[in-house]
């Protein structure tokens, strides 16, 4: 299978070919060996190699907003705070700021709203009239240690409730024990249960000890038909990092070169500053190319990132930093 290298940005309007997965083939990833120090060096020097300033920074930050999965996954969620989140998702930036940038007609909104199953209906209602999908975390999020049958059932009821995107967690024990075939079967079963809903597979990389295993788990998840692979639940002690993201997106590139399927990437957890968001966009642009800089193929899982971006955008427009209370809360 030979595929063109990605260079142009032109075909981003084309319908994305959905990853249907490929048959399990351990030979495709068995020999992976990730060089930890080289990966960490690349990740740590990348932000010094590119500088995005002025109107470029403003435009990139707006792009970052369009890629946010605006998330609330708290024990005390209620319909009212989910409603507020949806309202914020539809108009993430104050109108006067958008007008000052000439972006008021561009329909800037976040990539999705991400909630627990119990609030899907509320979120669907809150997002009526917009094209923003509701994403639900599923399969026993965040630990996933419930029977597979129950996990499948969760996906099905979430899809029925109106979730267009399902964020699943994988069985970390299978990764730790290198039981790749079982992992493949589980993820493939989840994908089947998702139907038309897009599936993001969370590896929980903070609980995987080596980059080599992260890469192998990424391969298995993509082979089993994941639409996105995602770093973390946000509940592990270590969440999204640039090095672990680098390892994952390099497997996305290899998988694309092999199959022609573009799999998306979602770092989640601990991304709360505009500067971090730019660093991630640089990483994606450098390693995967412009094609991936779209909400179809890239998302941030974040709750407080938007607030910092709003303050940066106001600074771009006015030259001054404002207090957080000057931006409408979610």
């Amino acid at each position: 299978m030979k595929v063109n290298t990605m260079k142009s940005n032109k075909n981003s309007t084309q319908q994305l070919l959905r990853n249907d997965g490929i048959p399990f083939d351990a030979s495709l990833f068995e020999e992976i060996n990730i060089n930890r120090s080289a990966v960490e060096r690349r990740a740590s020097t990348l932000s010094g190699r590119r500088s995005v300033k002025k109107q470029w920074q403003a435009a990139w930050l707006l792009k970052a907003i369009s890629c946010i999965d605006l998330t609330t996954l708290a024990g005390d969620d209620t319909p009212s705070n989910v409603q507020r989140l949806c309202a914020k998702a539809k108009s993430p930036v104050r109108l006067d700021i958008l007008e000052a940038m000439g972006m008021q007609d561009e329909n800037i909104h976040v990539g999705a709203v991400c909630v627990y199953h119990n609030f899907i209906k509320e979120a669907v209602k809150g997002l009526q009239g917009s094209s923003i999908p509701v994403a639900a975390v599923s399969t026993g999020f965040p630990a996933g240690n419930i029977p597979l049958k129950e996990r499948i059932r969760q996906i099905e009821i979430s899809v029925t409730a109106g979730a267009k995107e399902i964020d699943i967690v994988v069985s970390r024990d299978l990764i730790i024990q290198s039981d790749w075939k079982t992992l493949y079967n589980e993820v493939a079963a989840c994908r089947k249960a998702c139907g038309d809903a897009h599936m993001k597979t969370i590896l929980a990389t903070g609980e995987i000890s080596t980059y080599t295993k992260v890469a192998k788990a990424s391969w298995v998840s993509m082979m089993a038909g994941s639409d996105f692979i995602k770093t973390s639940t946000g509940k592990e002690p270590v969440n999204a990092t640039l090095p672990v993201s680098l390892v994952m997106i390099r497997t996305i590139r290899e998988y694309y070169e092999l199959t022609g399927y573009k799999v998306g990437f979602k770092p989640a957890g601990g991304i709360s500053k505009a500067k971090q968001a730019v660093n991630w966009l640089v990483l994606i642009k450098e390693e995967l190319g412009n094609d991936w800089l779209t909400p179809d193929l890239f998302r941030f899982g974040a709750s407080s990132l938007l607030g910092d971006i709003e303050r940066q955008l106001e600074h771009f427009v006015t030259g001054r930093y404002s207090a957080a209370f000057r931006h409408p809360m979610a």
């Binding site: 109107q55 470029w56 403003a58 435009a59 000439g102 972006m103 412009n290």
Partner: peptide
Amino acid sequence: MKIKEIYETMSYGPAP
């Protein structure tokens, strides 16, 4: 360069 154009092309600007 207009922000809208950069938003679409996601280009790097000059950073002297």
